[in-house]
Amino acid sequence: MRAIVTVIGRDRVGIIAEVSGALARANVNILDITQTVTREYFTMMMLVDTSGFAGAFSELADSLDECGERLGMSIRIQREDIFEAMHRI
């Protein structure tokens, strides 16, 4: 299943390392990354493939929530379908 991870918050050292580490431990493959920093705010979007993750989607979401708390940022994971539905015909 393809999903979008969004990371939003104040910029700091090690955001990508922390998030990609969490994803690697969950055996989730990163397919693409886009990021920008505007006025100290860091916004990153990752397209990931979760098919290698053995647990339920909610467990993955929980582990990213914890990762977000450690970083003091908002991290969420959503299936790609919701964005496709909204923005592509």
Binding site: I4, F83, E84
Partner: peptide, 12 residues
């Protein structure tokens, strides 16, 4: 490929 603005717009 979706762009970052579309993702942000949806979540907002």
């Amino acid at each position: 490929m979706l762009n970052i603005n579309e993702i942000i717009e949806t979540n907002e």
